[in-house]
Amino acid sequence: MSVRLLAALPFIGILVGVPFVNRTEPLVLGMPLVLAWIVMWVVLTSAIMGIVYLFDPANRDDGADAADVEVRS
């Protein structure tokens, strides 16, 4: 249940965090800091939703969509 709280982090990171990193320098991976910050949160969001997915009891195998798993695995 508490794993779901992770999903609130990107909202905080993007909506609350941006004023604190609103700078060009230092460049991160060649990008202005504020852009790099947002990109980082996009990647973290993906990781977080992956974790939420793994721990969500709703996704425990019930065999119902075994066929579908193959499409993307």
């Binding site: 852009l35 990109v39 996009v42 990647v43 969001t45 993906s46 990781a47 977080i48 939703m49 992956g50 939420v52 997915y53 969500d56 709703a58 996704n59 119902a64 969509d65 579908d68 993307r72």
Partner: peptide
Amino acid sequence: RNERIFRRNAFLLPLYQLILLFVF
């Protein structure tokens, strides 16, 4: 086809839209 597809897409789609970065 089933509801689990949305949950799986929720972690694939954020990465996918990083392509927009290159458009920028």
